[in-house]
Design a protein around this nucleic acid. Structure first.
Lengths: 223, 223
DNA sequence: CATAAGTTAATAGTGTTACTATTAATTTTG
DNA sequence: CAAAATTAATAGTAACACTATTAACTTATG
């Protein structure tokens, strides 16, 4: 797949105080927060450590993001926008619904290799962060308020895109949204189990297993 | 369903410093930590606030649990032990594998009404905590170490019990474990979506919807 | 070109959290 | 009943999340 270089997505403005893509320091914050969260985990990640990491300090980071929760929401929005883009790209000019379904599943369920879409965002590492940290963005007491603010819009759009394709494959299927959402979140869970709870998966470790499980399962459910 | 009163489960000893079921204060800690975590969320929950809540203080709580993460793991272990017990109970003397599968799904996927199993644990509230906090117990950098310590054993046992029943229904099905784990974690996700991301489900809000979705889906996959 | 205005970054703080060491009070036991 | 063991509260510490203030540097304007 070939993508235009230096892709940019529109991110909800309420997620940042100053656009991190607009300055050198901002791009450094994005790049190294991804690396640092992956390395030490979101709980141990602090703006102080990030500041040290980029040769700046805490309060400079605070001028871009209100707190680390918003930063994680920003990175997640970026990730899901990138997935959405690739989903739409992968089904361009494809007419057959089943074909579309399979391609879209490949995109959400695939292991991500680093891709040169942007210089300051390493998609492979970001994918690991989403696997282990994404659910923390909505498993909070503020979820309903933040949902109203549109912080989960891109994520929900991806779920509905998949649901629509499911409906194209089988128009009378009554659970397209539930099925879609259980697959999108399911792929993330399975990637985690594959790495940490091997006992409760049948995967042997090679690429594309998660996608192929969901494709086979969907075929049985819908055909 | 009828259960013996005052049920007790064996909880991994590494999860506590002093057995909370062995004293009045300990039982109060269990009871009110469940209520408080549900009320304010796990992030805002502190031992100081819990101490105030039970008319005691912080350091007394620390004599029972090393930190709030271990307390959450304790509560989760209790919850999954209770689910496992009810799963096994529900399939006693049932010979038909498909019947067993359906009953077991009803147990994992059901909304929990308070049950009088124990005086100091409100299962309905605990179920809400599991829905919004359980994944935080394993989405940490310590997961592999804690997995070796057996902190997730009961959870994995439930997944494997379901996988075994799937294999009984269809012995040649190659993904029983993956399917089982995607259902157990899927039910929890769907309950959350039902409450907070209604746009990505097809549920209308009445009881048993999640269970019935998974039962129908499993029937299509396996039969 | 000088100076005001605006932007950026660092210092130094505050209140809270997570956790510990110490001491005081109570209960158990020989 | 005294010694030993257990329990509980006080008082502390280091780190964290976040803010107010000030210093420095850049840009705009008369």
């Amino acid at each position: 797949m070939e993508f235009p270089g230096n892709l940019r997505f529109t991110i909800n403005e309420k997620l940042y105080l100053k656009d991190p893509e607009s300055s050198e320091l901002g791009r450094k914050i994005l790049k190294y927060s991804i690396i640092l969260i992956d390395q030490i985990g979101f709980e141990s990640f602090t703006f102080k450590r990030l500041g040290q990491c980029i040769g700046s300090n805490e309060s400079s980071v605070y001028r871009y993001f209100e707190n680390k929760h918003k930063l994680l929401l920003y990175l997640s929005s970026w990730y899901w926008s990138w997935i959405e883009y690739r989903m739409l790209f992968s089904i361009q000019n494809i007419a057959d619904p089943l074909q579309k379904l399979h391609r879209v599943i490949e995109v959400v369920a695939a292991e991500v290799k680093d891709d040169e879409t942007t210089a300051y965002i390493d998609e492979a590492i970001l994918n690991r962060i989403i696997i282990s940290e994404y659910s923390k963005t909505f498993l909070t007491k503020e979820v309903d308020k933040e949902n109203k603010d549109g912080f989960f819009l891109v994520y929900k759009r991806i779920n509905l895109l998949l649901a629509d394709i499911i409906s194209e494959v089988k128009p009378d299927y009554p659970y397209s949204k539930t099925l879609a959402s259980s697959i999108v979140v399911g792929t993330i869970n399975q990637h985690f189990f594959k790495q940490h709870f091997k006992a409760i998966t049948d995967f042997s470790g090679h690429d594309g297993e998660v996608a192929s499980f969901y494709i086979k399962t969907l075929d049985k459910i819908l055909l």
